[in-house]
């Protein structure tokens, strides 16, 4: 008796599951839809709690004077934004970030292209070289920063010793206003180069051999092949590298936080994220930090859109 009941229940269930319904002119299975949303529950909940909610909170917080220490939260209109726009430190951090992004990306893309083209050509021990160039990427930034902290030591660091061999005056690296940002950039290029090399290399290896053979038959030199065939075909990947590079440059935080915790001499190495961190978590001014985060987000967003429009390809057009 019980059993038959269960069976009918089961049948009922499968009946419901097989039922179809219409949605915007398309037929769907009820059971399949239920299963799909069950599978998506964790994703949707986490996205709402960890993406939508923070985004809304960020906007709200940016109009308050919320402080971490007191926990008090009062709306203060656009005071935070006014504070930021009139704050020298904020503009300094933004300028630093732009400088960092432009110089770093310039160096990075040129070097990565050169290395990728070399790794794609006929040389010995390609595999080992590839592994070596990529190895810093997988190593934690903090660990690498500690090594470079020593390199940049003006007294006992090996960099000044090497400069000495060439008769160059010792530099103060991260301890002087003029060289601090450059030092961070050099570190950053070293650390991130492999990632771009790998992307560009995979693009180069994806170029069909037919193009290259046709060009060779026409008597093109290696240089001509690089400029006229390889680089134009690499455009989409180069623009991707540029886009990732810009976004990552505006996200930079760790290396500066480890090597120059206070933003460096004369605040010369502090980036946008370091400024936000300082405001929100060192000074406890969450409202100001939130406003600065929104401005940072707008910058990143506009840059990304801009890149999508331009295609990021003009710079290598010859």
């Amino acid at each position: 008796m019980d059993k038959t009941n269960k069976q009918t229940l089961g049948e009922k269930m499968s009946d419901i599951a097989n039922r179809k319904f219409m949605w915007r002119g398309e037929k769907y299975h009820l059971g399949e839809t239920a299963a799909a949303y069950t599978l998506l529950i964790p994703t949707l909940i986490t996205l709402i709690v960890l993406f939508v909610l923070p985004l809304v909170m960020l906007i709200v917080l940016s109009f308050t004077d919320y402080r971490m220490t007191t926990g008090q939260m009062d709306f203060n209109g656009i005071d935070n934004y006014i504070y930021l726009f009139t704050s020298d430190k904020f503009w300094q951090a933004m300028r630093n970030t732009v400088f960092f992004a432009v110089i770093k990306l310039g160096l990075d893309v040129c070097l990565a292209l050169a290395v990728a083209l070399a790794l794609d050509s006929n040389i010995y021990c390609r595999k080992v070289l590839r592994t070596v160039f990529f190895s810093p990427v997988v190593t934690p930034v903090v660990a690498c920063s500690l090594i470079w902290l020593w390199f940049y030591d003006p007294g006992i660091g090996p960099f000044n010793q090497i400069l000495g061999w060439f008769g160059i005056e010792p530099l103060k690296w991260i301890f002087a206003k003029e060289t601090a940002m450059m030092s961070i950039i050099i570190f950053s290029v070293w650390h991130g180069l492999g990632y771009n090399v790998m992307l560009l290399l995979s693009g180069l290896q994806g170029i069909s051999g037919e193009y290259l053979e046709a060009a060779k038959l026409d008597g093109a030199t290696d240089m001509q092949i690089i400029w006229k065939i390889k680089l134009p075909l690499l455009k989409p990947i180069i623009s991707f590298v540029l886009m990732m590079g810009i976004i990552n440059a505006f996200k930079a935080f760790s290396e500066v936080n480890v090597m120059t915790p206070d933003g460096g001499p004369g605040y010369s190495t502090a980036m946008a994220v370091n400024y936000i961190y300082e405001q929100a978590f060192t000074n406890g001014r969450m409202g100001r930090g939130a406003a600065a985060s929104i401005l940072l987000f707008i910058v990143i967003f506009v840059l990304t859109q801009l890149k999508n429009k331009v295609g990021g390809s003009k710079e290598i057009d010859t």
């Binding site: 960890l50 909610l53 930090g289």
Partner: peptide, 17 residues
């Protein structure tokens, strides 16, 4: 779309939550 918002941007409200 969640990939367009870097986590560094939402770190303050995330800390709040």
């Amino acid at each position: 779309s969640s990939m367009f918002v870097p986590t560094v941007v939402t770190i303050i409200p995330t800390f709040f939550i």
